[in-house]
Nucleic acid binder design. Structure first.
Lengths: 205, 205
DNA sequence: CGTGCATGTTGACAATGACAACATGCGGTG
DNA sequence: CACCGCATGTTGTCATTGTCAACATGCACG
């Protein structure tokens, strides 16, 4: 954390860290170039040596937020204790769905940041990062759907495009609850909505 | 359009109109107070006589964008030509779902603006507006679901919360396609995703 | 022991949201 | 009809932000 010398050492990481911290509390609009630099104990414009512009920095922060989402999904998947393969497959699918919504509700700022900006470009070097796909929400979902096929609960001819159905439903619910018209829903109604959507997804696959 | 006098006449409407025009092309971030004032042929700060702040103006513009979405849904619903009541009910549900996604894709800026900001406050005087609920997307969806119950296609015990399932799926798909990770999906894959999601929704209800 | 070039810094500029002080003129009052 | 209050617009100003340009520093390599 010390400003060892004139040169920071690994400013890029420090900037992203600061951005992630700001994003957590204030969402994407809080990831301000100058504020991030300030937080990193460095002068504004220093960031331009590591990021093309504000958008570029935001994309890097967004990637980290997305990773946080993925990590929670992984954790929740691991927590599923169910021996029967069929029930376990369904439980795991539900677990990542619940994780997705929970993340959106409890880590409001991170969730909104994760989906704000061009994540596509930042993911370019995902090929070099060995376990990048390990926490990618899309990949995690695909694994659950594959598992459902394996245990014989999802007809193989229904497998193509199944991600779209599951992901859309859960993501839409999260977005409506966090940012959208369902923002002020009372807590028990939120819980009801989540269960309803998850049940509908399971039936709809 | 003439600046009749020193006093504009109905500046509020003019400002919202300008905001809607800017939002159409550039999304919510294009709804800039000064740009809107400029567009309305009035000096910056004039808007402060009609809106508390930027957020307030944006909410008004968002309401109009939401109304545009509702209007497309109404139009598409009316276009459904199907005599059989059962098939008509399903066709109408699919029509508003498709309208939702089509709107998001073709009116990118409007869609993002409609869901950016606190629509809740702007909708407060919806009670005074006679046909405000007539174009409210949520109300339109509820009508379709009620129709499904009426024709006996949706068990009444499944009716509660059905909005969450249908709305979440379609909204999530729209958001992912427009702003999210599915942004750069090729056209035919987009079409496939839409059909897959709509089919899953129908099964999941 | 120098020196080049990546990395940080200082300074500047235009755009924006917001506030304060001032200008204008419509509508109601005498 | 003359007057004036108050809603409505305007001008001026300020802090913040993203971005560019010019300059400073010092690590790594010769």
């Amino acid at each position: 954390m010390e400003n060892r010398t004139y040169h920071h050492g690994n400013l890029r990481e420090a900037l992203v860290d600061a951005g992630v911290a700001l994003a957590r509390a204030g969402g994407p609009s809080a990831v301000v170039l100058r504020a991030v630099s300030r937080e990193a104990g460095v002068s504004h414009n220093a960031a331009y040596r590591h990021f093309a512009d504000h958008q570029d920095l935001l994309a890097a922060v967004a990637a980290r937020c997305m990773e946080q989402l993925g990590l929670l999904m992984v954790r929740r998947t691991a927590e599923v204790a169910e021996d029967d393969p069929v029930l376990r497959a369904w439980a795991r699918l539900a677990a990542i769905g619940r994780a997705y919504v929970d993340f959106a509700l409890t880590e409001h700022g991170w969730f909104r940041t994760a989906f704000s900006g061009a994540t596509a470009h930042g993911a370019k070097h995902a090929l070099t990062d060995p376990d990048a796909g390990r926490t990618d929400p899309y990949t995690l979902l695909a694994a659950r759907l594959d598992e459902l096929v394996t245990v014989g609960e999802l007809p193989p001819e229904r497998r193509p495009g199944a991600e779209y159905a599951a992901w859309s439903a859960v993501h839409g619910l999260a977005d409506l609850l966090v940012d959208g018209p369902l923002r002020d829903l009372p807590a028990e109604e939120v819980a009801f909505a989540v269960e309803t959507v998850l049940a509908a997804v399971a039936r709809g696959l």
